[in-house]
Structures are given as structure tokens and as C-alpha cells.
Amino acid sequence: FSITQFVRNLGLEHLMDIFEREQITLRVLVEMGHKELKEIGINAYGHREKLIKGVERLI
């Protein structure tokens, strides 16, 4: 299971460039909250919320 699959499953594949540029893996994403996601350029609250909720389902 990769970050690419995870992001695609959430319908947020347009954010993949950010994850690749910042070298974010699923392991790193698990540790990130709204503040960190915003810092790397994910400005939409809804997108950040989707990512965080998606990660919570993985754990």
C-alpha cells in the first residue's frame, strides 16, 4: 500500500506533486496534522481533513 494509492483512494491525486516534492511517505503522513499539511502547501481545510481522517482509518 503506497502513498500514491492512498491519495488516489481519497480522490486527492492532484496533491501527489506536493507529496513527491516533499518526499512524504505514509509513515510521515501519519505523523502530520493540519499545521504540517498546511506548511507543505495543502491549503484547503477539506483536503487536510480528508487526509487526516483517512490516516486514522489506516492505523
Rank of each mutant, 00 (worst) to 15 (best):
I59W: 09
I52R: 06
E36S: 05
N43A: 11
L58K: 02
N9L: 14
A44Q: 14
Q23N: 14
I42M: 04
M32A: 04
L15E: 00
D17H: 15
R57L: 13
T4L: 15
I42C: 05
G46D: 15
I59A: 08
G46P: 14
L12S: 00
R21I: 05
M16V: 15
R48T: 03
E31A: 14
L37C: 04
H47R: 03
K35R: 10
R27W: 10
K35C: 07
K35F: 07
R48N: 02
E22F: 10
G41F: 05
Y45A: 15
R8D: 05
G54V: 04
K35L: 06
V28K: 15
K50A: 15
V28D: 14
L12N: 01
H47L: 08
I18E: 01
R27T: 14
K50S: 09
V30F: 11
L29P: 00
E39N: 11
K35G: 06
K35Q: 10
V30L: 13
T4F: 13
H34F: 04
I24P: 02
E20C: 09
N9I: 14
G41S: 03
Q23H: 14
K50N: 05
E20K: 11
T25P: 04
K50L: 12
S2E: 13
D17W: 14
K53P: 01
G41I: 05
L12V: 03
G46V: 15
R8L: 10
N43V: 13
T25D: 09
E20S: 09
G46R: 15
V55D: 01
M16L: 12
V28N: 12
I52E: 01
F19W: 02
I59E: 07
G46C: 15
R48G: 04
H34Q: 03
K50F: 06
E20I: 15
I3R: 01
L15N: 00
E31P: 08
E56G: 09
M32Y: 07
L15P: 00
M32L: 08
G11P: 01
N43P: 09
E39G: 10
K50H: 06
I24K: 01
E36W: 06
I3N: 00
E39S: 11
I42H: 03
V28L: 12
L15A: 02
S2D: 15
F19H: 00
A44E: 15
E49S: 09
N43H: 12
I24C: 03
I18Y: 06
K38I: 14
F6E: 00
V7E: 00
E31I: 10
L26Y: 06
R8C: 10
G33C: 05
E36G: 06
V55L: 10
H14C: 15
V7D: 00
T25G: 06
K38S: 09
V28M: 15
Y45C: 09
G54H: 05
